[in-house]
Design a protein around this nucleic acid. Structure first.
Lengths: 226, 226
DNA sequence: ACACAACTTCAAATATTCTTCAGAAAAGCC
DNA sequence: GGCTTTTCTGAAGAATATTTGAAGTTGTGT
């Protein structure tokens, strides 16, 4: 999934980024209030990890900005202050969850996944679409009762498809969701083609039907109806 | 849909154009105030993307000109960040939405689509005309309950017809809407004939009636009444 | 440093759509 | 009816988009 890490402590930020990236997420970072605002008004994220104490502004204002645009984004508040006030005001302003420093990265990761699941899959731990079954916790995908091994990108792609099922999604939006900022630097979509091919092949090999339709000149659509 | 990009930064303009064109839109560009005025008084667009800071005039005056001709065109204001005044005056003068630089192209695209949908289809995601049903998200067209596969041009043509239903539209306006500036370089309307033919054939093949009437010497009309 | 897997790039093959052209059909006009 | 103009149609060619396999690169763990 696509994350924004708002954290002024660069070491911690780097740690979080590397851990969360290894878990298969696309991460972007903002180190202060202004960067954070720039990002959240211009890009879309699945979850924003928001430190409330920023050098040039109040993290809560980022949260307020997110509320205004009534977006789908989830927010996990991070704060060193163990003050109950912060926690309450954060949750009052629409944050999804709260974690206090210091924390284990695995704990952070678990909470992010929980937020995402709650928002996108009504807190289900298992998603089922036709013959496809996904265990979000175990990161395991079954097609017609048999497990298929997906790489991180393939898994992310599948999740993205499923959370936009029966809608056309463009190659651009796929690139943005799976590669974040970096998507701009590529000048072809060869890599998207490649991952689509591999995902299709693996689903097919396991006996699954034809889920991913190509909409020539537009993009792709993941069919779960017919 | 047909867009006009008013932006003096040529690199940004080019980026926007290429992205939006790839999304299936017809794009034209204006690099300064005078070009913009020339364009908006001579042609019609679905949405104008308007940078307020232009070298030879005020972007707001373009907006005012658009208001005067009481046209159907939507306006998305683009401006450097933090100029709250710009934002307010833009929205006061009838702009539909506002986006601050820097922004992500997908965000721009999403807002443009939202403006268009709001204006033309009262924000509906599904349009229905007699036996034709269009799912704008899925990019799917049903005729008498069966899906028909349309190419990008055919789809655009259908949308253009439907948003001008029961009105005569000239080949010129079709060419302008689907090909923008490039329309001038063609010396016949053979390509328009061709796409109309294909669209008719596909609707008919799916059991739909006769929607597109030829008005000899004038153009075409898309009938949704009788 | 090595092996391995995943990711990306490249180039060729394939598929689809768009445009052009030429001739046929239809409509308007005398 | 003849004549001109406009529209329609099918087929071929050009252009564009997608798919694919293979090679190259990166990154991870041992």
């Amino acid at each position: 999934m696509k994350l924004l890490i708002v954290e002024d402590n660069s070491e911690l930020s780097k740690n979080m980024e590397s851990y969360l990236a290894k878990e298969g997420n696309t991460c972007e970072t903002a180190f202060n209030y202004h960067q954070a605002i720039d990002k959240v008004v211009s890009f879309t994220y699945d979850v924003v990890i928001l430190d409330l104490t920023l050098p040039d502004g109040d993290g809560l204002d980022v949260l307020k900005a997110l509320n205004k645009q009534s977006s789908e984004v989830g927010v996990l508040i991070v704060s060193a202050r163990n003050s109950l006030d912060d926690k309450l005001s954060g949750l009052n302003f629409g944050a999804d969850d709260y974690i206090t420093k210091p924390f284990h990265l695995s704990e952070l990761n678990a909470r992010i996944k929980a937020i995402y699941r709650r928002r996108n899959f009504s807190n289900k731990k298992v998603i089922e679409c036709r013959e496809i079954l996904i265990d979000l916790d175990a990161h395991e995908v079954f097609v017609a009762q048999t497990v298929i091994e997906l790489t991180k990108k393939e898994y992310e792609l599948l999740i993205f498809f499923i959370s936009n099922q029966n809608r056309v999604i463009t190659k651009q939006s796929i690139a943005e969701h799976l590669w974040g900022d970096q998507a701009d630097y590529y000048d072809s979509f060869d890599f998207v083609y490649q991952h689509i091919k591999n995902l299709r092949k693996k689903i097919l090999a396991a006996g699954g039907g034809d889920y991913i339709t190509t909409i020539y000149g537009m993009g792709y659509k993941f069919n779960t109806l017919s």
